[in-house]
Amino acid sequence: MRRVSLTVNAVEHEAMVEPRQLLVYFLREQLGLTGTNVGCDTSTCGACTILLNGKSVKSCTVLAVQAEGTEVTTIEALAQDGDLHPLQQAFHETHALQCGYCTPGMIMAALDLITNNEDMDEDEIRTGLEGNLCRCTGYHNIVKAIQQASSEMRSFATK
């Protein structure tokens, strides 16, 4: 066992983990943050996407011990006092989900894209989502949701 300390959604945690424990299982099983889903388990589908030091990563392909000293952000950090984050609200309003299994990963990947890229066009959003698979929606409404959230987040930021 090895001690690991990291910050998850602005809360510091310290725990003993087996080196082989994957970050996604640490988040889900040790911290109870089950919003991050495990989909394919082979770093393909992106359902387990979180932010590690502000960058989107697939938490099924990161060891918990590799996250020592990092800042992790999961889907649970987005809504504030019951108010949905603009991305969550936009997914809701544009019907960007059906079964919802890919949604936490889609939203975390989209958050990285919006934060790190100025004014993406539709093609850039689609390319930026190449690491996230959705088997229900055909992606159209997901792209719409990200466009809507992106403009809302930018207009909010410039107010």
């Binding site: 992106g46 590690l52 989107s56 990563v57 392909t61 990947a109 894209l113 690491g131």
Partner: peptide
């Protein structure tokens, strides 16, 4: 290579 998440690590 891969996708944005893969390229970040």
């Amino acid at each position: 290579v891969g996708d944005p998440q893969v390229r970040h690590l």
